[in-house]
């Protein structure tokens, strides 16, 4: 009886020491989960999820504070990837945070722009160039389409324009096969 107890205690000790050692030896610096979630998020930095950027949202998901279906620009595919990563059930995008839209970029009507710099300050990814009282313009390839610049513009000269397909961005379509003709 006593031997058994001693053996059990010894095993517990050894395992505990091993676990403790492992937790120190293999300690992961930083939070890879947040990085992994952040890598899936589209980096629009639009704040539609209710957090001030993609990283904070990633942090919130990792902490269990936010759900995975709050990112409209990431869309269904983004939610699927998050669900895969976190081993959760897929759920449709929550309407509360917005709807999935085709990718668009901001365009400043240069005739109307008064050079107030408000949009420059609002742009989370520094995609608008210009100076006070100088015309501003959007650097199109850098624009994430977050729409944060639209509201602050005092003269409403910013519009969101869908990105047109070019030869560079054109994609072959999934082959459509008429095999599932229902009998």
């Amino acid at each position: 009886m006593l031997t058994a107890l001693l053996i059990m205690a010894a095993i517990a000790l050894v395992l505990g020491a091993a676990l403790g050692f492992a937790s120190i030896r293999f300690k992961v610096v930083g939070d890879p989960l947040v990085e992994k979630i952040d890598a899936i998020l589209p980096q629009t930095q639009c704040g539609q999820c209710g957090y001030p950027g993609c990283k904070p949202y990633a942090q919130a998901i990792a902490n269990g504070e936010a759900d995975i279906n709050q990112c409209p620009p990431g869309g269904e595919e983004g939610i699927r990837k998050l669900a895969d990563l976190l081993g959760r059930e897929f759920k449709p995008l929550s309407e509360e945070f917005g709807v999935e839209k085709p990718k668009a970029v901001a365009r400043i009507d240069e005739q109307t722009c008064i050079g107030c710099t408000l949009c420059i300050q609002a742009c989370p990814v520094d995609a608008i160039v210009g100076a006070a009282k100088q015309m501003h313009t959007v650097v199109e390839p850098l624009c994430t389409g977050c729409e944060l610049c639209v509201a602050p513009c005092p003269v409403d000269c910013i519009t969101m324009e869908p990105v047109a397909e070019t030869v560079e961005t054109w994609k072959w379509k999934y082959p459509v096969i008429e095999i599932r003709k229902r009998a």
Partner: peptide, 12 residues
């Protein structure tokens, strides 16, 4: 594009 956006956002 996302990596670039993340970098610029963080730098900003």
């Amino acid at each position: 594009a996302a990596d670039g956006a993340r970098e610029r956002f963080e730098f900003r």
